[in-house]
C-alpha cells in the first residue's frame, strides 16, 4: 500500500531531513511513526501527500509511482488519502456539517451523495447532535473528530494523522486513538505520527522510530523500546 525505497529529502544543502528511508506498509495496517522534534516525521507525511518530492529514492502508493504522477493527476491521487493535523485545520467560518461537506464539494461530489454521506460520517465520529456548531464552540477533541470525519468522508484507502492528539488532554487523546483504531478495523490503512509513548505502548501496534531522518527502529513497542 505504502512503500518508500531509499528515500532522502534535503531541504537545503547540509543535513537531510530524511536520509535513506525504506519503509513498507501493507494494506489495512495501523502504524505509529515516532521520533523527537525535528526528526523528519512531518516531512515524511508531506512526501506521502506529494506536497514535497524526494531528493532521492522512490515512493509508491497503491502501486503508483509518485514521481510519475504529474501536476494534473495530483488531485485524484490525493482523494485516496485522508489527512488530519495537530491543529485540526477546520474552516472557522463554517459549521461542523459544512466542514465535512466541504471535503465532498471540493472533489465535486453530487449534492445527493453529500446529503447522504455527511450525516453518516458525523454519527461515526459521534457528533451528529452538534452538526450546526462552529469549530470555536467545540472542544479540541470534538474539533479533531470533525477533522477525522472530513478526512474520511471521501472514503480514502489511507488515513495520515500528523500528531492528531498533540493538542489534546489524555481523555480526548484516547478517544481519538480509539476512533482511529475503529476506522482501521473497518479497513482503512492508518499512519499516525505521535509523541505520546504511553498511548503507543498501550495500543501495541507497529512503530516506526525515526532519528535524525533515519529509521532506527521498526516493530512492536516491546521490540524497539530500548532505543
Amino acid at each position: 500500500m505504502i512503500k518508500l525505497e531509499h528515500v532522502s529529502k534535503l531541504y537545503q544543502e547540509g543535513v537531510p531531513a530524511l536520509d535513506d528511508v525504506s519503509i513498507n506498509i501493507e494494506k489495512g495496517e495501523f502504524v505509529f511513526i515516532m521520533g523527537k522534534s525535528g526528526s523528519g516525521k512531518s516531512t515524511l507525511i508531506k512526501l506521502l501527500l506529494k506536497e514535497l518530492t524526494p531528493t532521492e529514492g522512490e515512493i509508491y502508493i497503491s502501486g503508483k509511482k509518485l514521481s510519475k504522477i504529474n501536476h494534473k493527476a495530483i488531485p485524484n491521487f490525493r482523494r485516496n488519502i485522508g489527512v488530519v493535523f495537530q491543529n485540526f485545520r477546520l474552516l472557522q467560518d463554517r459549521n461542523v456539517y459544512e466542514n465535512v461537506a466541504f471535503a465532498m464539494k471540493v472533489v465535486e461530489a453530487p449534492t445527493r451523495e453529500i446529503k447522504k454521506r455527511v450525516p453518516l460520517m458525523l454519527s461515526l465520529v459521534n457528533l451528529a447532535a452538534k452538526y450546526k456548531s462552529l469549530p470555536r464552540q467545540l472542544s479540541g477533541g470534538e474539533q479533531q473528530r470533525v477533522a477525522i470525519a472530513r478526512a474520511l468522508v471521501n472514503e480514502p484507502e489511507i488515513l495520515l494523522a500528523d500528531e492528531p492528539t498533540g493538542n489534546l488532554d489524555d481523555t480526548n487523546a484516547w478517544e481519538i486513538m480509539r476512533l482511529l483504531e475503529e476506522i482501521n478495523e473497518r479497513g482503512t490503512t492508518v499512519v499516525v505520527v505521535t509523541h505520546n509513548a504511553e498511548i503507543v505502548r498501550k495500543m501495541n501496534k507497529r512503530v516506526i522510530y525515526i532519528k535524525r531522518g533515519q529509521v532506527v527502529g521498526d516493530g512492536k513497542w516491546g521490540d524497539i523500546s530500548e532505543i
Binding site: L49, E51, H71, K72, I74, P75, N76, F77, R78, R79, V83, R89, L91, F102, A103, V106, V107, E108, R150, N154
Partner: peptide
C-alpha cells in the same frame, strides 16, 4: 488556509 486544505483534499486547480 482554505486553499491549502482544498488542495490537500484533492481539489482540481480549476476548482
Amino acid at each position: 488556509e482554505e486553499i491549502a486544505i482544498m488542495k490537500l483534499i484533492g481539489a482540481k486547480d480549476s476548482f
